[in-house]
Design a protein around this nucleic acid. Structure first.
Lengths: 330, 330
DNA sequence: GCGCATCTTGCAACAGGTTGCAAAACCAAT
DNA sequence: ATTGGTTTTGCAACCTGTTGCAAGATGCGC
C-alpha cells in the first residue's frame, strides 16, 4: 500500500542505498542523482518511514510525555508549550495519561514498547521514585515541575516552591495581614509541603502562627470544600493557596460564607494561569515562568538524549508576584 | 543495549519464532513453552518492540491527534478523554500541535512518517478540506467537533451547531429578552456560522432582527474586545456567545461598561466547560456531551482502522441547556 | 594519456520483529 | 508398534531503512 524506498529506487533507476542517502543530509550522493531521486519520490508520494529507520539508527525522535493532571487548566498551556517546542525541534510527543496509581513500571512499559528516545514527566504530584524508575531502566528522563533539589536524580526544572512560599508570606505580611492561613494541595505532594515550609519559615521569623489545611486534589471543588472546613474555626485575615484553582475554589467558599474578598479576607494564589486575570476572578497570584521552565526542560531532555551520561541538573527559576484584586492595598 | 527477542530465545532455549508467538495472543505455542519464555523475558526485562513489529504487521497502534486550539480550556477535558480512551483500548496518541496556517499536507507528513494507524482531527476551526487531504492519502481519519453534516466526507462527531443556536434563541426569547445579539468565533469557522444560522432561524420566526459580530479568536481577549465594539451602538437585552470563553470575555466588557449581568443584560454561552460553573463566573450555557462525543469519535476511528472502506457517518449529539446565573429568571 | 586521490554507488548484512511452510513431536486409537 | 491427525516448533524469507565496505567512476595534475 505505502510507497517504499525500493519503489523509488526502481523508479529512479538507482539502488535502495542511494535513495536512503538522498534523504540523509550530508550523505554521499551526487547532486544530479539526488535530484532525480527527489523527483521520483515526489511523483510517487514517498515518505521515509522513521520507525523502520529507527531500527538501525536507534533513534525514533519520539519523546514520551507522562502527565497525571488533566484537571488543572494550568496544564493546557504547559502541553501547548511542550508539544510545540518538541515539534519545532523535530521530535514528536507520545502521550501517556497516567491514571491515579498507575505504577511507574507500567508507564515505563508503555513507552519502551515504542522505543521513545526520552521521557518527560510533567507533574507536581508524581511520587519521588517515579523518575528514578525510568532512569534506572536506561531511559533518558527529565522531570518538569518537580521539587527543587540542588542535587537531583534526574534533570529537572521548575520553581523553588519554598521561595514562592516565602514570597507569599512576605506579600501578605507587607499588607498588614496578621492571622494567616495556608491552603495546600494533596499533602503527600512535594509542592504542597515545600510551599508550606517556605510560607512558615517567613512567618516564624515574626513569631506568627499560621493555620493550614490540605485539599484532596488540586481542584476547584477540593479548594472550596477545604476552605469550608477551615472556616468552621473562623476566618483568617488572609490565605495563601498553593494553586490558583484551589484559590478560586476557596474564594467561592469565602463569599458563600458572607465574607468579601478582598474586603474582609485576602487571598493569594499560585501559578498565574490564564484565567486568574479574567474579570470576575482577578486573582492576585504568584507566577511561574512557564515558558522558561518548559524550554529548559526540553533543552535538558534533548541534551540527555545526545549524551546519556550527562549529570542531572536542576534548573530553578524564580517565582514572581502578580498583583491583582484579591488583596487589600498596602 | 535493549533486550531483544533473540536474547530471550537463547535464554529460554527456543527459536525466535517461539518467543514472538509467546507474545501473540492466540498463536500456536505449547503452554509449557510459553511460560518458560515468559519467565526468561521477565528475568531479562524483555519488552517487544512494537515498531519493529509494525513493519510486518502494518499496524503501529499509534493514532495521530491533530489539534490547533490549545488556548481554550474546554480542550483540556477533551484531551484527557481522548488520551485516556485511546490508551484504554491499547492505542497511543501521537500529538500534532497545529500552528495557525500549517497546511494539511505538512500535518499529514508528520504523521505518515510515524505510520500512524489513523488520525483524529480535534478542532472546530480547521478548514473544510483538511480531513479530506488525509482521507485521500489513504490515512483513516475522523473529525471531532466538525460541522454537522448528514453525508460527511469522513466520520465525524459533535453537536448540531444549528440546533444549539436555536436552543439559545428559544431560551432567550422564553425569558422575554427582545433585542438579541450574537457573538461568534472567527467568521470563517463553521461552528461560528452554523450557530449563528440556528440562532437567526429561530428569531426570524418572530420577525426579530439580531445584531451579530465575530471575534478574531475563541478567546477571552477576543470576546472582550468584540463586545466592546458591539457596545458602541448600545447594548442588546441579551447575547448568545458561541463559546464560554468568549462569553466570559464579553461579560467582562459588559461589566466594565457599567452594565450588570444578568441585571441589565443576559448572556448565554456554549460548551459548559468546567469553570463556567465556578463561583464568580456562574455562566448559563449550552453543554456539549463531550464524553459521548469523544467516545463516539474513538469508536469511529477504530472501526475505520479495522475496515478502511467503511462509509463515513456523522454522529450528532443533542446540545443541552445548563441554567446558571447570567440570565434573568423567567 | 597516465596515475592517483576523491566521489559516488551498489552489495550485502543488519536492526527487531512476524509468518507461511514443512518438519518434528505428540497423542490417541488400532 | 503403526497409523493418522493434531500440535508445536524452527527455518527462512520478509517488513523498511541504514551503513560498512569495496568496486567503479570521475577529476585533477603532470
Amino acid at each position: 500500500m505505502a510507497v517504499t524506498l525500493r519503489d523509488v529506487a526502481r523508479a529512479a533507476g538507482v539502488s535502495a542505498s542511494a535513495v536512503s542517502r538522498a534523504f540523509t543530509p550530508g550523505a554521499s550522493v551526487a547532486p544530479a542523482t539526488r535530484s532525480r531521486i527527489m523527483l521520483a519520490s515526489a511523483k510517487l508520494g514517498f515518505q521515509p518511514n522513521r520507525l523502520a529507520a529507527s531500527l538501525t539508527t536507534g533513534r525514533t525522535r519520539l519523546v514520551g510525555i507522562v502527565a497525571d493532571d488533566f484537571g488543572n487548566p494550568f496544564f493546557l498551556r504547559v502541553f501547548d508549550l511542550f508539544t510545540a517546542g518538541l515539534q519545532a525541534r523535530g521530535f514528536r510527543p507520545l502521550l501517556v495519561n497516567l491514571q491515579a496509581g498507575t505504577p511507574a513500571t507500567e508507564a515505563l512499559g508503555m513507552l519502551r514498547e515504542y522505543a521513545v528516545d526520552a521521557a518527560i514527566l510533567i507533574s507536581a504530584t508524581l511520587p519521588y521514585g517515579f523518575a528514578r524508575t525510568f532512569r534506572d531502566a536506561g531511559l533518558p528522563v527529565a522531570h518538569c515541575f518537580a521539587r527543587a533539589n540542588a542535587r537531583p536524580d534526574v534533570p529537572q526544572s521548575g520553581i523553588d516552591d519554598a521561595q514562592a512560599g516565602r514570597l507569599a508570606a512576605r506579600t501578605l505580611i507587607g499588607r498588614g495581614y496578621v492571622s494567616l492561613g495556608y491552603l495546600g494541595g494533596p499533602q503527600q505532594t512535594q509542592p504542597a509541603q515545600d510551599r508550606f515550609n517556605g510560607f512558615q519559615d517567613e512567618t516564624a521569623k515574626l513569631n506568627m502562627t499560621i493555620v493550614s489545611a490540605y485539599a484532596a486534589a488540586w481542584s476547584f471543588d477540593a479548594g472550596r470544600a477545604t476552605m469550608q472546613t477551615m472556616l468552621e474555626n473562623g476566618p483568617c485575615d488572609a490565605y495563601f493557596c498553593a494553586d490558583d484553582v484551589l484559590a478560586i475554589g476557596a474564594i467561592s467558599a469565602l463569599r458563600d460564607a458572607g465574607l468579601r474578598v478582598p474586603g474582609d479576607v485576602g487571598v493569594i494564589g499560585l501559578n498565574d494561569m490564564e484565567m486568574a486575570g479574567w474579570a470576575g476572578i482577578d486573582l492576585t497570584t504568584i507566577a511561574q515562568p512557564v515558558a522558561d521552565i518548559v524550554a529548559a526542560c526540553i533543552e535538558q531532555t534533548l541534551a540527555l538524549i545526545e549524551n546519556p551520561g550527562l549529570a542531572a541538573e536542576a534548573r530553578i527559576f524564580p517565582a514572581r508576584l502578580v498583583l491583582r484584586g484579591t488583596l487589600r492595598p498596602v
